[in-house]
């Protein structure tokens, strides 16, 4: 908390899967309250990068500091860090054996050790925020994909996170459900929480991003504010990528 302004500081990070280099010399700084959208072709290391932010994967070289805590395999700060950093997955990863309400309360109750009553109160507040308070007693399998993803967002928020990571949150959804999730994400963006989203939803990116990051082959190729990124990107590769996904 020394540099109050910087939330995520990534410096010269390399990441290997055996012989394959997934990330090469990646550096990135995210300020508190900043909304960053990372895009790029598949296999470019976007997901790997944000999975390194909360220690689902570990980088092999360089440093990642999140809110003053260094991310390192086996470090003591790791579980505290994960409580501050929420993660929303492509496949939701809700707990199918628990009701929606229990999905939201199990983290606060077991990890943060707050009372059931308080956890349920908190859970209902966030279910309200993602517009599905009436589904509290159902099981995840009874909900649509869009609803499940909103529950997943609420589950992360219930840990009172300061940073939210989104790993292609709409890629597994039917087209008609994408907007209800994006709407929730836009509303979330307006609350001042720090957000890092890996997504191909360029409409969403234009609307909320403070910074656009383009990655290819494990490197950050371009970092720019959205107005410049969408109208006048510097690299050829980025231009090509944008023309491919924006033309449709």
């Amino acid at each position: 908390m020394v540099q109050n302004d910087t939330m995520i500081s990534v410096s010269k990070v390399d990441k290997f899967y055996d012989d394959f280099q997934a990330l090469t010399d990646v550096s990135l700084t995210v300020k508190q309250g900043e909304r960053v959208v990372i895009c790029g072709p598949s296999g470019s290391g976007k997901s790997t990068l944000i999975r390194c932010f909360n220690g689902l994967e570990f980088h092999n070289a360089g440093t990642i500091v999140i809110d003053g805590i260094e991310v390192e395999e086996g470090s003591k700060g790791l579980r505290r860090l994960r409580q501050e950093v929420g993660m929303v997955f492509q496949q939701f990863n809700l707990f199918p054996h628990l009701t929606i309400l229990e999905n939201l309360t199990i983290g606060p109750m077991k990890v943060q050790k707050i009372s059931r009553a308080e956890a349920e109160k908190r859970a209902r507040t966030y279910l309200e925020r993602v517009h599905i308070p009436e589904q509290a007693d159902k099981y995840p399998a009874q909900l649509s994909g869009g609803q499940q993803q909103r529950v997943a967002i609420a589950r992360s928020l219930c840990m009172q996170t300061r940073i939210m990571l989104f790993d292609e949150p709409t890629s597994a959804l039917d087209p008609e459900m994408i907007n209800e999730v994006l709407d929730v994400m836009v509303e979330l963006a307006s609350t001042g929480i720090t957000m890092v989203c890996v997504t191909h939803e360029m409409g969403f990116a234009r609307k909320v991003a403070d910074t656009m990051v383009f990655m290819e082959a494990g490197r950050i190729v371009e970092t720019a504010p959205p107005e410049k990124f969408f109208t006048n990107p510097e690299s050829e590769r980025c231009k090509m990528f944008l023309s491919q996904i924006l033309d449709h």
């Binding site: 994960r82 496949q91 990863n93």
Partner: peptide
């Protein structure tokens, strides 16, 4: 595997993930 990741991402320890998420399923 996503269940482990879900549990880990909300700060559960390995033991908690086993006890509350993985073993019941």
């Amino acid at each position: 595997k996503g269940q482990w990741e879900g549990a880990t991402s909300i700060g559960m320890s390995k033991g908690q993930a086993y006890r509350y998420i993985v073993l019941p399923q």
